[in-house]
Simulated assay, not measured.
Amino acid sequence: MTQDRSLDGVSRRKFLVGAGAAGAVALAGCQEGASTDTEEGLSGDIIVKGSSTVFPVSDQMAQDFMAEHDKVNVTVDSTGSGGGFENHFCPGEADLNGASRPIKDSEIEQCSSNDVEPVEFRIAGDALTMAVNNDNDIDCVTPDEMSQIWREGGAERWSEVNSDWPDEEIPLFGPAETSGTYDWFNENIVGSNTQHTARHQPTEEDETIVQGIRDNEFAMGYFGYAYYNSNTDAVKALEVDGGSGCTAPSLANAKDGSYPMARPLFIYPAKSALEREEVYEFMKFYLTQAETDIVEEIGYVPSSADLRDDNLSKLDQEANV
């Protein structure tokens, strides 16, 4: 991962507010002009909310798109997948929502009640990472051991899970309930018969999770791989044994499916927003660039050429181009 695309840089530019937007260009439908890269006249405001995991991708796409179209202002805010859907996207106050898990039926119903129709695009892959302090001697965990620690009423000391582990309390740092990462982890690792512990310190700021682990010798926490990838000196990633041996979180292991906590990442535009030329062009740019090394440099698995082409075809269909 190159330094100029590190998460340190991403956090410094977290909320972009560009100047000089000349007002939205509203078209009755995205016909021939919408599918071309209009160098003059493309303008307007685009609001992106949602997943903190997807945030660095959307943020980089926004910067690169605005560099080509200086009259378009794209603002990107990290609100969590669920927080973005519930508070911004489904009420009709955001054009796009990033998500680190698929949209829920209840969210589709909420959107529908406000005449918002979400359109799903899978844009990358992630290796969800469980991390500990660098001074911790533990190197590998199983899904069951993670569940014992992260479930409601679960183990509060390392030794309660494994007698060979330290007899020390485990400070926990993780996503808030509004996070798609929280939802994915709760469903796939904590387990369907129990609930995620409320004992952890929740946040939508993944860098805060990194800092909590770094500053507490026996701490534990989880986040998207990109945040580990930019903080490899600050924390240690645990390998995960899903039954086939300990496997490290990596882009290669996420891509081939050998890593037990690999998962897809999504972006959801509102179908009505795609009728605006600037939103259509931004989505076209986003889906095209998602197959490039931009995504890999951030710390995620890029979409394939086939997925890119399928996404672009779906975009034209949904936008009636």
Rank of each mutant, 00 (worst) to 15 (best):
Q3M: 12
Q3T: 14
R5F: 06
R5Q: 13
S6G: 08
D8Y: 13
G9C: 07
G9D: 08
V17C: 00
G18I: 08
A19I: 12
A24F: 04
L27S: 00
G29I: 02
G29M: 10
C30T: 08
G33C: 00
T36E: 11
E40C: 07
S43V: 00
G44F: 01
I46K: 04
I47W: 02
G50I: 00
T53P: 01
T53G: 06
V54K: 06
F55N: 00
P56L: 01
S58I: 08
D59T: 02
Q60R: 02
A67D: 12
E68M: 09
E68P: 00
D70K: 09
V74D: 05
V76I: 06
T79R: 03
T79I: 06
G80T: 08
G82E: 01
G84C: 08
E86D: 15
E86T: 15
E86L: 14
C90Y: 05
P91I: 10
G92Q: 01
E93T: 15
E93C: 13
D95G: 11
L96Q: 07
L96F: 11
L96H: 04
N97K: 04
N97D: 12
E109G: 12
C111M: 14
C111Q: 02
S112M: 14
S113R: 15
N114G: 14
D115S: 15
E117K: 15
E117A: 15
V119I: 15
D126S: 11
A127C: 14
N134C: 10
D135Y: 10
D135F: 06
N136R: 08
D139Q: 12
I149T: 07
I149L: 13
G154D: 01
R157Y: 09
W158T: 06
W158A: 05
S159W: 04
V161M: 05
S163A: 14
D164C: 10
D167E: 13
E168P: 02
I170S: 09
F173V: 01
G174T: 09
P175T: 05
S179E: 00
G180L: 01
D183K: 07
W184C: 01
E187D: 14
N188L: 11
T194S: 02
T194M: 06
T197P: 08
R199D: 14
E204M: 08
D206I: 03
E207D: 11
I209R: 00
V210Y: 01
V210T: 04
R214L: 10
D215G: 06
N216K: 08
E217C: 09
F218K: 09
A219N: 01
M220P: 03
G221D: 08
Y222D: 04
G224V: 06
G224S: 14
N229W: 08
D233L: 13
V235I: 15
A237Q: 07
S244W: 10
S244M: 13
G245R: 07
T247N: 03
T247D: 04
P249Q: 12
N253D: 13
D256I: 13
S258P: 06
M261W: 00
P264S: 12
Y268I: 07
K271C: 10
K271R: 15
E275V: 11
E277K: 12
V279R: 03
Y280C: 09
Y286L: 10
Y286G: 04
D293W: 10
I294G: 09
V295K: 03
E297G: 02
G299E: 05
S303T: 15
A305G: 11
D309P: 05
D310T: 14
L315R: 01
D316K: 11
E318W: 04
A319C: 10
